[in-house]
């Protein structure tokens, strides 16, 4: 049974695309069939983060408009064989995305894949609402920072009112993914703590991604962090989040790259 997940945040630059790529790769590495879709028409970037920018021929808009068949636009990952990308159009306008067209594409993908990850554009406009429209569940990516938390709150409100599930009176599953978390700064009172963000947004926690140099390195290389630095703290955090998405009960930790005295003294506290 396919599951459609929207990766969303409201605010830009918090790590939606990075998280879509990393979660998608982590899910696919366990042999499940995964497709990641870029909904950011006109400002696509998932292709770049996935390292497939030179292999894009057709895109989501071509499929939505019926110009090409879905398999022609799907790009198979060269490293993980069950991972596919459906890129956004870089030249077209976001109005080219029609509600019926998107519904048709999602329905067709449900037949072929176990997981359909929709990378939402920032904002609350058409692209973002269409990306969440058919979702069974949402991953809300938030940074422990005031503007990101505020925008996530707004997005949670939209998930509860504007999705197909919500309109049918059903509950849409929502998961919070806190990215760019710096445990040391939070401990010093310089950054919102996990508990603060959870109390304010009041949705269950999917994972905590520590601030990590490996994430920038991964996008430099065009390889999701769960492929390029599989042992890194960020990759382990995404792997754990992917397992939780699959319904596994895994203790919540904040993976760390530093194996020094600091960690032994302060431990790793689960939220």
């Amino acid at each position: 049974m396919a599951k459609v997940i929207v990766v969303t945040s409201g605010k830009g630059g918090v790590g939606k695309t990075t998280s879509t790529a990393a979660l998608g790769a982590a899910l696919a590495q366990s042999g499940q069939r995964v497709v990641v879709i870029d909904f950011d028409v006109g400002l696509r970037n998932l292709d770049l983060v996935m390292g497939a920018e030179r292999r894009v021929v057709y895109d989501l808009i071509n499929v939505v408009q019926g110009a090409v068949k879905l398999p022609q636009a799907l790009i198979r990952d060269k490293r993980v064989e069950t991972l596919y990308l459906l890129p956004a159009s870089q030249t077209r306008d976001k109005d080219a995305l029609t509600e019926d067209g998107v519904a048709r594409v999602i329905a067709e993908l449900r037949e072929k894949f176990d997981w359909i990850l929709c990378d939402s554009p920032a904002g609350i406009e058409r692209g973002a609402t269409l990306a969440m429209r058919h979702a069974d569940a949402a991953v809300v990516v938030t940074n422990p920072e005031v503007s990101s938390v505020r925008d996530s709150d707004r997005i949670i409100g939209l998930l509860d009112s504007k999705t197909e599930k919500a309109e049918k009176g059903e509950r849409i599953e929502k998961h919070l993914l806190i990215a760019r978390y710096d445990e040391a700064r939070a401990a010093r009172g310089e950054m919102l703590k996990i508990e603060d963000v959870l109390e304010i947004l009041a949705i269950p926690l999917l994972g905590i991604i520590p601030e990590s140099q490996d994430v920038l390195r991964a996008s430099n290389l065009g390889s999701p962090v769960t492929i390029s630095s599989i042992e890194s703290a960020a990759a382990r955090a995404y792997q754990a989040a992917a397992l939780r998405l699959c319904g596994e009960q895994i203790e919540m930790t904040i993976p760390s790259d530093r194996k020094g005295l600091f960690n032994r003294l302060f431990g790793r506290r689960a939220a």
Binding site: E145, V146, V149, R150, A186, G189, E190, M191, L192, K193, D196, I200
Partner: peptide, 9 residues
């Protein structure tokens, strides 16, 4: 500053 952020939010 974190408690200030929390309260404002």
């Amino acid at each position: 500053s974190a408690p200030v952020a929390r309260e404002r939010l």
